[in-house]
């Protein structure tokens, strides 16, 4: 098990267990994490599961695909270099954990 830490805009942190291979979006929904809307259910269609990945954790993730890149141009909160769609981030097998920041707005 790895840990995913979700940091809310107000600084609140929720750290939860996550099985390798599950998506950061899925783990957020199951644990009722605030601010992950996931309107399309994880199909890279809506950009409402936007997160900012901790810079140190970004390197352990595979490069994003073109469709995720296209969707990130349409986020409600500004896109940053560490922006990702949490539906496309799978918890790596060899990982102590990932920390992500939840944006102010998803819609």
């Amino acid at each position: 098990m790895s840990k995913i830490s979700y940091i809310q805009p107000d600084g609140n942190v929720l750290a939860v267990d996550a099985a390798p291979g599950t998506s950061v979006m899925h783990v957020a929904l199951v644990n009722d994490v605030l601010g992950i809307v996931a309107e399309c259910g994880g199909n890279t269609m809506c950009a409402t599961c936007h997160v900012y990945v901790d810079a140190g954790d970004l390197v352990q993730l595979p490069e994003m695909e073109g469709d995720e890149d296209a969707m990130l141009d349409c986020t409600a909160s500004p896109r940053e270099p560490n922006s990702r769609l949490s539906c496309q981030i799978k918890v790596p097998a060899e990982s102590a954990g990932i920390t992500v920041r939840v944006p102010e707005r998803q819609v």
Partner: peptide
């Protein structure tokens, strides 16, 4: 072509 789709929505 998700990029074209997103552009179309806008």
């Amino acid at each position: 072509q998700p990029g074209a789709h997103m552009l179309a929505r806008r």
